[in-house]
């Protein structure tokens, strides 16, 4: 599947309530599900939250994912 589809799938794993955005609290729910520490998850959140408003949108999330996939900050959208 495409990067956009994958990033939407992953977004939904994080956004369990289907709010349409991810908060730090949502991120910390992944503690125990993923082999990352609370500090790692904070770090991931800060890295993905490009505008620093405390909410991760699917756009921010997918741009982080495409950066991971391709090593560039080109938007997946």
């Amino acid at each position: 599947s495409t990067v956009l589809e994958k990033s939407q799938e992953f977004f939904q794993i994080c956004d369990t309530e289907g709010k349409g955005f991810i908060t730090r609290r949502d991120m910390q729910r992944l503690l125990g599900e993923l082999p990352l520490s609370a500090e790692d998850l904070e770090n991931v959140f800060d890295t993905l939250d490009a505008d620093g408003n405390g909410y991760l949108t699917v756009e921010e999330f997918s741009s982080g994912f495409s950066e991971f996939m391709f090593g560039t900050s080109a938007s997946a959208a």
Binding site: F10, L36, N43, V44, L48, G64
Partner: peptide
Amino acid sequence: DPNMKGGQTSEGVLANFFNSLLTKKAGSP
């Protein structure tokens, strides 16, 4: 190895995060 650093860069932690999600998806049908 001079490229090995203690502690993870934000890039490294992001890669770790997405890799874990990929693994998680692969592991759950």
